[in-house]
Design a protein around this nucleic acid. Structure first.
Length: 569
RNA sequence: GGGGCGGUAGCUCAGCCGGUUAGAGCAGGGGACUCAUAAUCCCUUGGUCGUGGGUUCGAGUCCCACCCGCCCUACCA
């Protein structure tokens, strides 16, 4: 059993995340974490809110709150939603934590000591009315090429040309609208990534081959172009301050590190938050841990360059034995009817609203069974309803209900004894063992769609077994055989409750709690146990749980499609 | 402009290093069954594998060109 370090990309502090954010990082990381824990691995699943940067400051300003207060509230809000999704973080931290500040500054000092940080003066647009330097995209104006009057300083959305903010005609602040802009000189720290390109390339060559192409190809693309030196500080109020002991002048000027510099370091910082809170040993996971720990990162494709190139460059340049990622699981986008989920246009489904409509298991299963692993995938209400109804309600939920109801009706509140297992049960056991092996193999390989398919095949096998044995017929001629069938089917139900937990933890627990089984501490099923189908002995008391998954009705669909604008695009 | 990924049945997707009649689930059609959330199980109709060339005994799978979608292109995160 290895030690498994798992992180999912940090959700940005500002705004409620939508289902696309959920399926691309936190949810698969949770499914994987739960699976590995169940298999007996020592797992540490770490996530956090990413709290620094211009958008957070502006959102706080708009909310009329001090940025620290704004972020504290937003963090709690996000945390509550993730609890609702049953995300089993070992720690859900904050990139604004003292722990992250400490480690970020430490790594910056190490980079400096090794000659990978340089101070440079750059010229940047300053908005007098807003009292802040503006990132390029926060400057709008008229495009000099096409005349579009809402072009952003980084790119014109109309003609797609890449721009410099000083190219814009009639430039103004996107925040206040003020045209009182000046180009000012400001000093920043640059990470000399150009000096680290070869090392990162060698590291990718050695480690990236097994990653999904989505991750490795993006990484290689950046490297073939050669890494450029990159500014890692900003002129903002809210961020990790540049340490005064190393850069007194910049510290005095109030410089903070760029959000993308401190955000990945928060994986380490959050682990220290966890250690400080629980007495855990954070260093054993992150420092000189290369042989004992396997580290898997989950993220959507937009995050890949930062995780495969820039962060590794930072770590390599520190010359310290920080743990580097072993496997990068990258996802494409989940779209809403082929279009982008959009906060500003209120398009799509957001995590808070999702939980108001239906319990987490419905979303968890649907999202993972249709995860955008090889390409963007499209959320549609029709597919959602058909997946939930067919797989969860009909195949699994109905199986549990039909077996337990029938058994109770005919044999009472305990698992019936009945005849010894016959050929049908032996064949079933072999089939279940095979399907379970397939399910495990797909989860081990982080193929979530295929894992969900294998799980559904396990559920379906139970229904097929009932069809072959037909206990409602057996009961008339051979009650012992009927009892055997039900005993076996009940054992399947218990097996399902164990192995389904990564995808549908709440329903799995509900099913499991319907058995009064002493010492039921089993967390996984061995091949022999799968073949035997005898973990729940005759005589075990059980109850029939309430309907596990309610079906989504046509009325529900009509209501939600109307409310969320499904298909309109 | 440059680059990456993708374009396979009505829908969502599998198809490893090229090799016999291109697969799954859902939807559609037929049948079986009645324990169960009108559930289940079995059978089955759908595809000139984006387009056009090329390599090969043989290509969805390799090469070239083009079309379409998404993403990246370093100051959003």
């Amino acid at each position: 059993m290895t030690r498994q370090l798992i992180t999912s990309a940090l959700p940005y502090i500002n705004g409620i995340k939508h289902l696309g954010n959920m399926v691309g990082s936190m949810l698969p990381a949770d499914v994987y974490s739960r699976y590995l824990r169940q298999r007996g691995h020592e797992v540490l699943y770490i996530c956090a809110t990413d709290e620094h940067g211009t958008p957070a400051e502006l959102a706080a300003q708009e909310a009329g709150l001090p940025v620290a207060e704004f972020c504290a509230r937003a963090h709690d809000q996000q945390k509550a939603i993730y609890d609702g999704f049953q995300l089993s973080f070992d720690w859900f931290g904050r990139s604004s934590s003292p722990q992250n500040r400490e480690i970020t500054q430490e790594i910056a000092r190490e980079l400096h000591a090794n000659g990978f940080i340089e101070e440079r003066a750059i010229r940047q647009v300053y908005s007098v009315a807003d009292g802040r330097f503006l990132p390029d995209r926060y400057i709008v104006g008229t495009c000099p090429h096409c005349g579009y009057d809402k072009a952003r300083g980084d790119q014109c959305e109309n003609c797609t040309r890449v721009l410099d903010p000083t190219d814009l005609l009639n430039p103004r602040s996107a925040i206040s609208g003020s045209s009182e802009l000046e180009v000012r000189e400001t000093k920043h720290l640059f990470l000399l990534q150009s000096k680290l390109t070869d090392e990162v390339e060698a590291w990718i060559a050695e480690n990236g081959d097994n990653w999904p192409v989505l991750a490795s190809s993006i990484a290689r693309k950046w490297l073939t172009e050669g890494l450029q030196d990159r500014a890692i500080t900003r002129d903002l109020e809210w961020g990790v301050p540049v340490p005064a002991d190393t850069w007194p002048e910049l510290a005095a000027a109030g410089k903070v590190f760029y959000v993308w510099f401190d955000a990945p370091i928060e994986y380490i910082g959050a682990t220290k938050e966890w250690a400080d809170a629980t007495g855990g040993d954070w260093r054993s996971w992150w420092y000189e841990a290369d042989d004992s720990v396997r580290y898997t990162e989950f993220m959507a494709k937009d995050n890949v360059p930062f995780h495969t190139v820039m962060f590794p460059a930072t770590i390599l340049g520190s010359r310290q034995p920080w743990k580097k990622v072993d496997y990068v699981k990258a996802f494409n986008w989940l779209t809403y009817y082929g279009g982008k989920f959009s906060t500003s246009q209120k398009l799509g489904i957001f995590t808070d609203v999702a939980l108001e409509l239906l319990p987490a298991d419905y979303w968890r299963y649907y999202l993972m069974a249709n995860a955008p692993e090889s390409d963007d995938s499209s959320f549609t209400w029709d597919l959602f309803a058909s997946t939930v109804n067919k797989d969860l309600a009909d195949t699994l939920g109905n199986f549990v209900n039909r077996v337990l109801s029938f058994s109770r009706k005919r044999f009472g509140d305990e698992v019936p004894a009945g005849a010894e297992n016959g050929e049908t049960e032996i064949a079933l056991g072999a089939q279940i063992a095979d399907l379970l092996a397939e399910y495990e193999a797909q989860l081990d390989a982080l193929n979530f769609r295929k894992a969900a398919q294998a799980l559904r095949a396990l559920w379906s096998a139970g229904n097929a077994y009932l069809d072959v044995t037909a206990p409602w017929t057996q009961i008339k001629t051979d009650p012992e055989a009927a009892a055997r069938t039900l005993r076996t089917a009940i054992n399947l139900i218990h097996l399902y409750s164990v192995v389904s937990e990564p995808f549908i933890p709440t329903a799995a627990r509900t099913i499991r709690e319907s058995f009064t089984l002493a010492d039921d501490t089993r967390t996984w099923i061995t091949p022999d146990e799968a073949r035997a189908l005898a973990q729940v002995p005759a005589g075990t008391a059980f109850t029939v749980p309430p309907v596990l998954f309610a079906k989504i009705t046509d009325e529900d669909l009509a209501t939600w499609t109307e409310r969320f604008g499904g298909g309109a695009q």
